[in-house]
Every structure is written in structure tokens, then in C-alpha cells.
Nucleic acid binder design. Structure first.
Length: 817
RNA sequence: GCCGGGGUGGCGAAAUGGUAAACGCAGGGGACUUAAAAUCCCCCGGGCUUUGGCCCUUGUGGGUUCGAUUCCCACCCCCGGCACCA
């Protein structure tokens, strides 16, 4: 423990004082006029939290502090920094928690938001509380619904049937994460799939643009890669296989398959349709209908998670139908098997067991023929296949294409198929359309009215918001559909077009829609008549820096890019990418292992702030390790930054007038240089270490600092420890906040320059001496000084000197034999 | 299986081709003090040592280089994500 009596630093007094002053003076908040006229604007965004009942944990604080440091630094450099925060309070988490507690989410959320607000203020974030958003506020979700309607009008919204996880015992829709090992997490009943009509956003229309833009946005590499993998562009071909009857005659039905290896078509020995494929009924032999139906029913009973698990033992049944392989003319059987997914490609494949491991496994299981159509350079057409071969080589057993190298075969065979009218090159994406329907209560109602005569009609914009009614019975029940469907007085309405009796859509929208556009709203919260003001958009958007967790690498970050792109195309925005820079922060663990309630190692910030202050906690978190990699929170380690801030306080408050010591001044300038370089690159841990080192030099031997030596450390520590920085800045005689005006210190290369340098002297790469030489010494002098060193002499005497390596200001290496 | 990120003292870590272990924690010794705290000074990867020094050490094995924690190849382990994507 530090003696507070002596140095007078009491974190809680200082922090309360400055938090109050910031609020009174409006230090961190903007008026509308200020936003409209801001010079050199910098939009500093961080991912807004979901306000849980537990409150903020140290992982949240870590993320917010790292982003806040970035914003505060930009402000100290003179930029006008807008740093808003809000609450992503709709969604299944809040709803499940409310169900568990037996509380209505409408009561639960405000108290959570209040608690989060208190905690966020306490850690000293530079938040503009006048521009906060809460996604559950009708003034906000009015515009979420507006976004839906704009996309609907643009033809980017589609209503179609899609499978959902269904618990037959709870009679409710489950989210994927509520399905544990194929069973409902609440009652352990096996989960099945149900087809329900749902609303989709056609994000796949944008797949190529979403992929292409990745090459010019400045994002963390791992996030870019995750998005690119998620979009999953693949190049291949669609091939048509005619269905034939028992006599080998064409029935007029075609099965279209997608393949990335059209060149292996000669090896397609059977076909597989996904159990959901509509042609299964058409091709199935009447004698096998029962078997096939049984299999399809079994597949349906699998939940969506289990269905996609890799399983060594493949299942499937023959349909009794046949196709003709258009390359060989052979008759090949049609099977149905659940290893083929309706979701991808065309939901049907040509099976090439020789060159696809899944098809190979299936063929072995059911004794289907395996034909080699690619041979490795040292193999031939008859080399046996022990497993699917996917390497390089040349085509075999492929008619006129025998001998074609596989590097060219895809193109050549596709062209042949196209010429003969049974195929075409195509691009396929793994990305699916975005299902935004939720058969739940806690979200914004989807603003659609279903009319028997007019179909699905959007709610007129003048009638927005469609307010989510407070209902006591918000839990899922036996009816199995959205809770709002039970409230007739709510969903019964009239059609906006024909005035007939009609019904409101009773599904609510996905939380990712709420968070998909929130950054557009922050600057415009004053405007009740528009979601975002065009002038403010031009001044502040796109976001300059967005910092958040990589757990949102695909969903949130992809959806918000899509919405921005769509709104751009509709003429609402003049940019199409929302975030210039995105950086993913690392994860905080505690005492070497992941924080979890069950382990009981969750660090709660409040008691830590109580004992050490927010400034120490912030500085410690940023000191733990590289911000983009995370760190290990250890209880004992906080003493380091705590002591550092105390010593800084002591040195600043006792600083004397006078000339700085030249050696100390050099260190100060070197430190400014390093910290200035590292903070914008989020290298916070080493920037803090540099300041610690600098203060150690200033205080060495118990010396009292001069004011010029220690003053630059105050604005430099300010991004990390804003309260103590404000207090010390004031005590140094400044009347304004350190954050008003560009108070970042400057350095001079001249003053940072060393007048002597330590040179490592090696013989054959091994260190034999260290010598000090004047930094402007010429090579010859340094080499001679090195050669003169006694220990060096011992190692080179009597040997032949072949080379001397000289690296300025670094080393001399004598290469001898 | 695929795609990321990692593996360095007792611990968190630093160094991106040039003195491995900066900074901090924990530990040990000393100064100041009636005492404690705070502050300041010293030690703190391992081994050998004639105390001058010498040898070993960044997951493992190889390579490139005067020189490799850093670049290349192969392998092992840990963490995260995706996963029958045709």
C-alpha cells in the first residue's frame, strides 16, 4: 500500500472531482451546432454493450478503455473527437434472462441500463452522453423499422420458408445456441426442424461487392480473413443430368448440380439429392417410396446443428431413379443422403467417389462403383484408389480428354459441357441470405401488415414506430408461434392499401438489425424526423476507427457493411463502407485461465476501482499485454501501475523550477518520440513501459524533477489515466482541461539524440565486448576501438581476419578463421 | 479436417535480421526510519569458473546468414473460429 498521507494522491477524490467537472462543463459532449461545425472531426466508435444484469466485467472495461485511449489520444493531438456509447438491449439474451428471473424485460432492461451507465461513467470514458442510443427505445427502433421498409421497397426483402430448430415438448423455436447435442437445453427433448415462413434480407446480392471491398478497407487481418471465408466464394460449374426411366429414355426432368470439379464428370458414378430436394418425389421409384419417406423424415428430425456435423458413417437410401451421365452416357443411380445440404449449391451433387473423400466414403459404405479419372504424375488409369485422390496429375478414363493436365482440365471440360448444352461455368457463395425473423417477443415488430387481398404490405412510414406492446404473457407457450400472435387486439388491424381487415406480422426482427446501423444514428439523435441527417453524415461518417471484439468478425460487421451498402445504393448515404479502420482487440483472461462464473475467477471492476481507482485499473489493463492480443489479469500485478501513478503524482507535485538535466531531457524526448509513435498503433503496453522507464530516470537516486522534465508525462499519461492527468495539469497552472486544445507534447530529434552509443563487439557472431563510442564516430575509429578491446584481442589473435561487419550504432563483428 | 493467433525467466511480457529477457509482478539483500509504510540502491534464466571470463538457453528437428526469438522447410503442443460447402 502506498502512503496517501505523504504524497497526497487520493484516486477517488480526484476521479469524482473530474467526472463531475466533465459533466458540468460538457467536456465530452457536443451540442447539435458543435457537431454541425466541428473542424477536423474524428469519429471514434466502439461496440456498444448488451446490458446484462451482471453489469460490466473487466473484459468490457478492457475493450472500452482501449478504444477510449485511442479517442483521447486523437483529441490531445487536436482532433475533434466524437465518442458515443449506447445499449444493444433487445434480443434473446435479455429475454431468456427475464424469463429466468420471472421479470418482464421491459422492467429489467432500464435498471440494467442504469447500472451500466453508472459503471461506464465511473471508468472515465470520454463518452458523449447526449448522443446515446438504446435499441429498445421506440424513438430508435422506429428507424430500425424504417430501414426494413426501405430495403423492402427496394426488393431486398423476401418472405420464404426456411427450417428452424423446433422443440416438440416446449413447442417453441430455439436458437442454434439453445440446442445442446441435438437436444433442447431446457427439457432435453430431441430437437427437430420445422419449415416456417420467414423474412430474409438478400445479402447474397451483395456477396461479390462485400468480398471485393475487403481489399481496400483497413481492418485487422484476421477479421478480413474471417469475412472472406464466411462469404466463401467458389468457382465451378453447374451441370445438368437428365433423369431417365427404366428403359433408358429421357423423362424431360433435369437434375442440376453444382461442382468445383466439372473435369471429373467422367467419374460421376451416382447422384445424390439432399433429402429436402423437391425432385426426390419425382425420381423415387413407387416401390421405394416408403423407404425414402422414412429416411427423409429421419433427416428432418435431426436438428440443424447435428445435421451438419461431420460423421464418418454416412447414411442414405437409393431412390430407384436413374440419371444419364452426360459425359459418359452411362446410367447412374440417384440416391438421397443427408450429407448433401439443400442450403448449398443446388442441393444436389454428382458423386465422384474417386476424387472426393465424402463420396468415396459413401461409395464404400454402399458398394457403389469407384472410377479413377485423375492420375497422379507417376500413376496411370488403372492405379487402385485407397482413398479419394485430389492432387495434381492428368485426366484418365475421360474419353477425348485423357492426358489433359488438371491445371487446365476444369476450363476445358466446362467449355465442352457448355458447347453441348449441359453445363456452364458459375460462381457460388457459401453466404446465405440473412434471416431476420425471430419468433420471439423481445425485439422490434417487423413493420408488415398481411392482407388477404394485397399480400404483405409495409406499414406506412407515417405510422412508425410499430410499438412493441407491453404484455405480461411474453413467454413462449403451447401455440408455438410468436407471443405477439396471441394478442389479437394488437395484431388485428386494417390494410393500409385497401382498408380490409388485416393482420400485423407478429415476428420481431433479429438483434443484428438493431446493431447493423446504430453508428449512423449517434450523431443525429436530436432529429426526430429522420434517422440520420445528411449534413452530419457528410461531416462525421464513415467512422474513423472502430474497435471491438473479433467474435463479431462475421455477423455484426458483415451485416452493417451490407446495410451501409444498400442504403448507399438507395441514395441515403454517400459512402458504402461504414468503418475506415477496424481493429479487433484481444481477450482478457484471469490468472492464466478463461474467466467464467463456474471457475469463480470473474474480475468485477467496482471493488478494484474502489481500492485503486479507475486510472490505475485502466492503466493496468492496457499494460497487461498487446491490446490486439489480450492479456492475463493477475491480482498482484496492479501494484505496478498503482505505484507508477503515485510516483508520477509525487514528482509532478514536487517539481521545481530550473534547467533540466541534459541526460534526463534526452530520455524525456526519446520517450515522447516512442509514445507518440506507439499509441496510435494501439501498442499501449510498450508505451506505458516507456513512460515508466522515463519516470525511473527522472527520479533516479531520489532526485527531484524539474518542471520541464516531468510536465510532458502528464498529457502522455492522460489517455490512460485521464483523471490524475487533469488534476496534475491543473496543479501545473493550466486553467483548462488537458483535453481542450492540442496539448500533446512535441519532441526534438536533436534533443533525443544520444551523444555516445554502446556498440556490441562480436567475434564470429559471439559477443565478446561492449564498447562506448561517440555517436558521430566514423566506422574506422569504431572498428579500431573494438579491435583494441582486451577480450576481443584474445579471441582474434593469431587468426586470419576474413571480414569485418559494421552496423552503425549497433555492432562490430570480426569474422576470423 | 480447414482457417487464424500463439509457444521466450518463478509469472505477465519486450525485442520483426544486429548485445535475448526492456517494463512490471513475485522473491532476496541493503540505505533511510524508534518501527512500519513509502522512497532510493543492489541481486534475480541455467551451468562452470583460476572472478579475467567461458559454455548453454526463445516448443522440437533441419536450413539460409558473418549473425536467427525474428526469414525458410518439417514436426509437436496450446488457444480461438469454421466445419459433410460438393
Amino acid at each position: 500500500m502506498v502512503n496517501q498521507e505523504r504524497d497526497g494522491y487520493d484516486p477517488s477524490t480526484v476521479e469524482q472531482k473530474w467526472q463531475q467537472l466533465w459533466e458540468e462543463r460538457g467536456t465530452n459532449s457536443f451540442t447539435l451546432e458543435e457537431l454541425q461545425s466541428a473542424q477536423d472531426p474524428f469519429y471514434n466508435l466502439m461496440m456498444f454493450p448488451y446490458p446484462s444484469a451482471e453489469g460490466l466485467h473487466v473484459g468490457n472495461i478492457y475493450a472500452f478503455t482501449g478504444a477510449d485511449v485511442h479517442g483521447r489520444y486523437q483529441r490531445l493531438r487536436g482532433r475533434t473527437v466524437f465518442e458515443p456509447i449506447g445499449f444493444d438491449a433487445f434480443g434473446i439474451h435479455s429475454e431468456n434472462f427475464a424469463i429466468k428471473m420471472g421479470t418482464n424485460p421491459m422492467d429489467l432492461i432500464p435498471s440494467n441500463v442504469e447500472n451500466f451507465t453508472r459503471q461506464l461513467k465511473r471508468i472515465g470514458g470520454m463518452f458523449d452522453w447526449d448522443h446515446s442510443v438504446d435499441t429498445t427505445d421506440p424513438d430508435y427502433y422506429k428507424w430500425t423499422q424504417w430501414v426494413f421498409i426501405q430495403l423492402f421497397k427496394a426488393g431486398l426483402v423476401e418472405h420464404k420458408e426456411a427450417p428452424v430448430n423446433w422443440c416438440p415438448s416446449c413447442m417453441t423455436v430455439l436458437a442454434n445456441e439453445q440446442v445442446i447435442a441435438g437436444e433442447c437445453e431446457r427439457c432435453n427433448t430431441p430437437v427437430e426442424q420445422r419449415q416456417i415462413a420467414q423474412w430474409f434480407f438478400k445479402i447474397t446480392n451483395y456477396a461479390q461487392r462485400l468480398l471485393d471491398n475487403l481489399s481496400h478497407i483497413d481492418w485487422s487481418d484476421k477479421t478480413l480473413k474471417a469475412q472472406s471465408n464466411w462469404i466463401g466464394r467458389s468457382q465451378g460449374a453447374r451441370l445438368n443430368f437428365p433423369v431417365i426411366n427404366k428403359d433408358g429414355q429421357d423423362t424431360g426432368t433435369m437434375i442440376e448440380v453444382y461442382t468445383t470439379r466439372p473435369d471429373t464428370v467422367f467419374g460421376a458414378t451416382y447422384m445424390v439429392l439432399s433429402p429436402e430436394h423437391p425432385l426426390v418425389d419425382v425420381v423415387t421409384d413407387p416401390g421405394l417410396t416408403e423407404e425414402v419417406d422414412k429416411y427423409r423424415q429421419k433427416a428432418k428430425e435431426k436438428d440443424l446443428v447435428a445435421r451438419q456435423k461431420v460423421d464418418k458413417t454416412k447414411t442414405g437410401v437409393p431412390t430407384g431413379g436413374y440419371c444419364q451421365n452426360p459425359a459418359t452416357g452411362d446410367r447412374i443411380p440417384i440416391w438421397t443422403a443427408d450429407y448433401v445440404l439443400m442450403d448449398y449449391g443446388t442441393g444436389a451433387i454428382m458423386a465422384v467417389p474417386g476424387h472426393d473423400q465424402r463420396d468415396f466414403d459413401f461409395a464404400k459404405q454402399f458398394n457403389l462403383p469407384v472410377v479413377r479419372v485423375v492420375a497422379a504424375p507417376d500413376d496411370n488409369a488403372d492405379t487402385a484408389l485407397e482413398q479419394a485422390y485430389v492432387g495434381s496429375g492428368f485426366l484418365v478414363n475421360s474419353g477425348q480428354f485423357d492426358g489433359t493436365d488438371v491445371s487446365k482440365s476444369v476450363e476445358i471440360v466446362t467449355a465442352w459441357a457448355a458447347d453441348n448444352g449441359w453445363g456452364a461455368a458459375t460462381v457460388n457463395y457459401r453466404l446465405h441470405d440473412w434471416c431476420i425473423s425471430r419468433q420471439r417477443y423481445w425485439g422490434p415488430p417487423i413493420p408488415i401488415i398481411h392482407c388477404n387481398a394485397c399480400g404483405a404490405v409495409p406499414v406506412p412510414e407515417s405510422a412508425l414506430p410499430v410499438v412493441l406492446p407491453r404484455i405480461e404473457d411474453f413467454r413462449p407457450d403451447q401455440s408455438g408461434i410468436s407471443p405477439l400472435a396471441r394478442i389479437e387486439e394488437w395484431h388485428k388491424t386494417t390494410c393500409p392499401e385497401c382498408n380490409a381487415v388485416a393482420r400485423r406480422e407478429t415476428d420481431v426482427s433479429d438483434t443484428f438489425l438493431d446493431s447493423g446501423w446504430y453508428f449512423l444514428r449517434y450523431p443525429s439523435t436530436e432529429f426526430a424526423d429522420r434517422p440520420f441527417d445528411p449534413d452530419l453524415m457528410r461531416r462525421w461518417l464513415p467512422v474513423d476507427t472502430y474497435i471491438g471484439g473479433n467474435e463479431h468478425a462475421v455477423l455484426h460487421l458483415l451485416y452493417s457493411r451490407f446495410l451501409t451498402m444498400a442504403l448507399h445504393d438507395l441514395g441515403y448515404l454517400d459512402f458504402e463502407e461504414p468503418y475506415d479502420i477496424f481493429r479487433a482487440h484481444g481477450l482478457i483472461i484471469a490468472e492464466g485461465s478463461k474467466m467464467s462464473k463456474s471457475k469463480g475467477n470473474v474480475i468485477v471492476p467496482d471493488p478494484v476501482i474502489e481500492e485503486f481507482g479507475a486510472d490505475t485499473l485502466r492503466t493496468y489493463l492496457m499494460f497487461l499485454g498487446p491490446f490486439e492480443e489480450g492479456g492475463d489479469y493477475r491480482q498482484d500485478g496492479i501494484q505496478g501501475p498503482f505505484g507508477f501513478l503515485h510516483r508520477l503524482w509525487d514528482s509532478v507535485t514536487s517539481a521545481a523550477d530550473g534547467e533540466p538535466d541534459p541526460g534526463v531531457e534526452r530520455k524525456v524526448h526519446q520517450t515522447i518520440r516512442q509514445v507518440t509513435d506507439q499509441i496510435p498503433n494501439l501498442q499501449y503496453n510498450t508505451a506505458i513501459a516507456a513512460m515508466m522507464e522515463c519516470l525511473n530516470v527522472i527520479r533516479a537516486g531520489g532526485r527531484i524533477a524539474t518542471r520541464t522534465e516531468v510536465e510532458p508525462l502528464v498529457p502522455m499519461i492522460a489517455p490512460f489515466a485521464p483523471h490524475i492527468a487533469e488534476e496534475l495539469w491543473e496543479r501545473l497552472g493550466h486553467s483548462e482541461s488537458v483535453f481542450e486544445g492540442a496539448n500533446w507534447p512535441s519532441f526534438s530529434e536533436e534533443k533525443a539524440a544520444k551523444d555516445s552509443v554502446t556498440i556490441a563487439v562480436q567475434v564470429n557472431g559471439k559477443l565478446r565486448a561492449s564498447i562506448d563510442v561517440p555517436s558521430e564516430s566514423i566506422e574506422e575509429d569504431v572498428v579500431e576501438a573494438a579491435r583494441a578491446d582486451e577480450n576481443v584481442t584474445r579471441h582474434i589473435d593469431g587468426l586470419e581476419e576474413r571480414r569485418v561487419i559494421y552496423v552503425k550504432h549497433r555492432l562490430v563483428n570480426f569474422v576470423v578463421t
